[in-house]
Design a protein around this nucleic acid. Structure first.
Length: 445
DNA sequence: AATTGAGGCAACCGCAGTGTC
DNA sequence: TGACACTGCGGTTGCCTCAAT
């Protein structure tokens, strides 16, 4: 990718400088003191020089004084941003190194979109750089139909008390930042355990702390094409399907991840092609045994309390990975998220909520090996074909479908396909010993 | 050669937190 | 204690470059 030089920008600026831009509403930009029109748009090298000189002379901070003292026709915010992102010393320029990329992925798995905090861990890098990098990475990986995180990415263990105040939001609301990515990406608001309260017969007072977002809002936002698509027989679904607890990964070499990153698939793959991949037995083993994270602890505990599992299911999806659109068998085996009940990142799962178009894998042509049974046939019968396809797709991708025991891989998912096991896991998460994580939830910024 | 779309980057916008008066 | 200014952060937008068609 091209790297625009400052000079090229400056040249462009000669044509594109925007004088007399409307003032920003926070009063910190726009008109300077004395009614001077402040400039917007790309910075020129001359402006850079003025700013650098000013900072060298007066130091950082008091950015609104820059315009007064230097004559620079820029608002304080703009000056601060320019300095922080481009002019301050010790800034690293150029592509991220492999190590930096690894750190970013790891930090994002822990922090979510806390770019500034991530930048603090990457000397010489700015939050803007990291943010841009991540956003392009998301796009790239979504296009490639790949999970955002390496399968073996270690996630943050339960926080210490000292960390909790700062990170509790990350842990609770962003229990798995992967979820938030898609949610924010699609501007979705997700009910968080609200129905779990009902599920548990109001046995979990903590659940009441979570906002109840009516299903209609989800419907309005296109997440669910029709209420008919929701299974009334599965009250657990709304709460669980989109907000699974944080997934914990085994702490292994992240570069394994790098090694399995065919950013560009052999063939273009529609991002909706997010089918639950087979979970290999070894992966299931890791699920139940080696992970040190909170969820896995409780899942493990639940599994031990809940053997044998309830295999009953009234819906099933028979899926053969071999029948997938040429996605690359290796990709699925190595890059799928083996620890997620979704098999791949939730971001990927929900990366596309739009109705399928012709040729989309959402068509679920039986010829490609998908045998979808919906459990609410009466509702389905009332829908037209397009709606049915969408609903099947959503059913298919709904975590609750993955949780309800659906045998969506022929090989089976021993640890997570058991609905009751996951239910127990969620229940366990809501026990008093974990209450501290759900209480004190700060307001989302 | 022209067009189009994606990738990448820089900058802006709006909001929230904090400090000061 | 409230108003205001300043600062920082995250999300979004706009624009340029390049590659594919």
């Amino acid at each position: 990718m091209s790297q625009r030089t400052n000079d090229s920008i400056s040249n462009n600026n000669m044509l594109k400088d925007q004088i007399d831009s409307p003032p920003s509403d926070d009063g910190s930009c726009g008109r300077g003191g004395g009614g001077v029109s402040l400039k917007k748009g790309p910075w020129t090298s001359a402006e850079d020089a003025v700013l650098v000189e000013y900072v060298q002379k007066h130091g950082e901070g008091n950015w609104n004084a820059v315009q007064k003292h230097s004559g620079l026709l820029r608002c304080g915010k703009s000056c601060r941003l320019r300095w922080a992102n481009h002019l301050r010393p010790n800034l690293k320029k150029g592509a991220f190194s492999q190590e930096e990329e690894r750190i970013i992925v790891e930090l994002h798995s822990k922090m979510g979109n806390k770019w500034a905090r991530m930048a603090a861990h990457l000397p010489g890098r700015t939050d803007n750089e990291i943010k841009n990098y991540w956003n392009t990475r998301i796009k790239r990986r979504q296009r490639a139909g790949l999970p955002l995180y390496p399968p073996d990415l270690p996630l943050q263990p339960p926080l210490s008390e000292s960390q909790k105040s700062q990170n509790v939001h990350d842990f609770c609301v962003d229990a798995d930042p992967r979820h938030n990515e898609i949610l924010s990406h699609h501007k979705l608001e997700i009910p968080r355990f609200d129905n779990l309260n009902a599920i548990r017969g109001c046995a979990f007072p903590y659940a009441s702390a979570f906002p109840v977002i009516p299903m209609s809002s989800m419907l309005n936002q296109g997440l669910v094409p029709s209420q008919n698509c929701l299974s009334a027989s599965k009250p657990l679904t709304e709460a669980m399907k989109l907000e699974l607890p944080s997934l914990q990964y085994k702490d292994t070499d992240l570069f394994n991840w790098d090694a399995c990153l065919p950013y560009e698939p052999a063939q273009p793959v529609d991002t909706v092609m997010q089918s639950p991949p087979p979970v290999l037995p070894a992966q299931s083993d890791r699920l139940s045994g080696e992970n040190s994270g909170l969820l896995d602890v409780v899942v493990q505990e639940s599994n031990t309390r809940n053997q044998p599992s309830d295999k009953s299911s009234n819906s099933s999806i028979v899926f053969s990975p071999n029948d997938m659109v040429d996605f690359g068998e290796t990709d699925w085996k190595e890059c799928s998220d083996p620890f997620s009940p979704l098999g791949c990142s939730s971001a990927s799962v929900f990366s596309e909520c739009t109705p399928p178009v012709g040729g989309s894998p959402f068509d679920f042509d039986p010829s490609i090996g998908l045998d979808v049974k919906t459990e609410t046939m009466e509702s389905v019968l009332a829908m037209d074909d397009a709606e049915k396809k969408v609903c099947r797709s959503l059913e298919y991708y709904r975590p609750d479908s993955l949780l309800d025991g659906s045998d969506w891989t022929e090989q089976g998912v021993e640890s997570y396909k058991d609905h009751s096991a996951m239910s127990e896991a969620i229940e366990a998460l809501l026990r008093p010993e974990y209450k501290k994580y759900w209480n004190n939830m700060p307001a989302a910024r």
